[in-house]
């Protein structure tokens, strides 16, 4: 199991708006599923992509979000993750915790990502 981070991440307003628009979310704040963006972008996203062999891609098998508090749009967080690499079939199991600057876990998320050859 590899540890990744912690990295600084932002609950980016433009990204939240784009995700809300793409998913029909009309509520206040960030959609609960929005932090999936942290798995594909920034340093965490890059670290995960580095674990995927060339020519292969990731497909979500499962995902969870557990909030201790809502994310604040525009706020910075620290995110730290562990990644387990499974075989037969090949998967990444990512567990990530986002904490607010003042401390205290805000969000725990877990993703099971199947490594597939898309062609």
């Amino acid at each position: 199991m590899a540890r990744i981070g912690p990295f600084a991440v932002v609950c980016d307003p433009a990204s939240v708006v784009a995700y809300a628009r793409a998913t029909g979310y009309e509520g206040e704040g960030a959609p609960a599923a929005w932090p999936t963006v942290w798995l594909t972008t920034g340093e965490l996203g890059a670290a995960l992509r580095a674990l995927v062999p060339p020519g292969k891609a990731l497909v979500h098998e499962s995902q969870s979000f557990v909030y201790a508090a809502p994310l604040t749009v525009g706020a910075c967080y620290k995110i730290a993750a562990t990644v387990a690499q499974e075989t037969g079939p090949d998967r990444l199991v990512v567990e990530a915790d986002a904490t607010a600057p003042e401390g205290g876990q805000t969000l725990a998320m877990r993703a099971v990502l199947r490594i597939v050859a898309p062609q």
Binding site: Y19, R21, A22, T23, V37, G45, L58, V59, H60, P118
Partner: peptide, 16 residues
């Protein structure tokens, strides 16, 4: 178009 919009918003660019 919905798929492309979600891919762009989420960063999930799996071409499948």
């Amino acid at each position: 178009d919905d798929a492309r919009c979600y891919a762009a918003a989420s960063g999930d660019d799996n071409p499948l």
